[in-house]
Design a binder for these strands. Structure first.
Lengths: 65, 65
DNA sequence: CTAATTTGTCAAGTATGTTTTACAATTTAT
DNA sequence: ATAAATTGTAAAACATACTTGACAAATTAG
């Protein structure tokens, strides 16, 4: 399932996937794939993304159920 | 760095590394390595661990700084 | 409308998360 | 003190996260 919270948080900071990827130190395709939801990033990458966007793990990656 | 919050949460439920590994569906060594802190699990595994222990991502895996 | 930026996607390769088997060290129970 | 369970650790194999390069579709800017 897509990660729309990530997409929204990135949009709120007016960053392109490329710009976020650069800040986090990964490729654009990796950010794209995470937003698209077709894979399972490492927690360190999630943490780096959260810090770049001023969010926490629970805010961007936690899901009840 | 070691994940002592995970170790404590597991202890609080009186689960061995093996028992937690079984509930989560991974090997005992994987749980051991995560507690020891020498690697970087996927976020889905972190979520499964959190749910098995009644915690959230922020409680077990988030770190300020 | 046109050009430029952004996004979606694919394939092949590399790095690393995870498993399996195995054994020694430590802790807990009898 | 002894046995049983738990934990720490290591190496080889396997699964998959992540990269690189490339191109078309869609969106935004001029």
């Amino acid at each position: 399932m897509k990660n729309l919270r990530l997409k929204a948080a990135r949009a709120a900071m007016d960053l392109s996937q490329q710009a976020l990827a650069d800040r986090v130190g990964v490729s654009r395709q990796t950010i794209n794939a995470i937003e698209k939801g077709d894979y399972n990033p490492t927690v360190n990458l999630c943490i780096a993304i959260c810090k770049a966007l001023g969010k926490t793990l629970d805010e961007l990656f936690w899901e009840e159920n």
